[in-house]
């Protein structure tokens, strides 16, 4: 079903909106939540919370990109839940991703810059990269896919994905310095 039709269902308060959302985006939401939480029950709850948030926020919001909108909600709720749970048993690839992101820009030194501004700079940087490089980076640090999963998704070897990610991180770091961010 087209996203526009799903949004219309939300607007007329038709509960089919939730059904159609689950049909179209359920798998993707579960994937994001599980990548972050590494626990099926927690991921399930997070996805249910995502649907509730969708129901409550549309309307008044009318997202022009439903995929990004629902991914954003799931990711945000999952990260908040991760913070709340203080779970020790985190997925290895998540820890790895956090460490690598921290290497690009330390949370300690980036205190005064808003996350929104950093996000915009990252977007600008990624738009200047090749499509493969850009998508591999986003799969790793937005969707938190493991290197193995990314390699399988793009028919790359794992070492190629690792090298690609390494180079992108280095370039992003240089880009942020160039843009005046003190690292």
């Amino acid at each position: 079903m087209e996203d526009g039709v799903i949004i219309e269902l939300y607007f007329i308060r038709d509960e089919d909106a939730l059904l159609k959302t689950e049909e179209k985006y359920g798998k993707l939401c579960h994937k994001i939540a599980y990548n972050i939480l590494n626990n099926r029950e927690d991921a399930e709850e997070c996805v249910n919370d995502t649907y509730k948030e969708m129901w409550n926020s549309i309307p008044p919001k009318k997202p022009d990109n439903l995929t990004a909108f629902i991914c954003g909600i799931t990711r945000n709720l999952s990260l908040k839940r991760l913070e709340y749970l203080k779970r020790d048993k985190r997925a290895k690839h998540l820890t790895e991703s956090f460490d690598e992101l921290e290497e690009i820009l330390s949370s300690n030194t980036a205190g005064s810059i808003s996350e929104e501004n950093i996000g915009k700079l990252i977007s600008d940087f990624l738009r200047g990269r090749g499509r493969d490089e850009r998508n591999v980076f986003i799969r790793k640090y937005y969707f938190f896919d493991s290197v193995e999963e990314i390699a399988a998704r793009y028919s790359f070897t794992e070492s190629k994905v690792k090298n690609m990610l390494y180079r992108t991180r280095q370039r992003l770091k240089e880009y942020l310095i160039k843009e005046g961010i003190e690292l």
């Binding site: 991760l82 991703s97 956090f98 992101l101 949370s107 950093i118 996000g119």
Partner: peptide
Amino acid sequence: IPKMAKSMEYI
């Protein structure tokens, strides 16, 4: 959660 990870939410 590292700030960079949160910032990715705004791409």
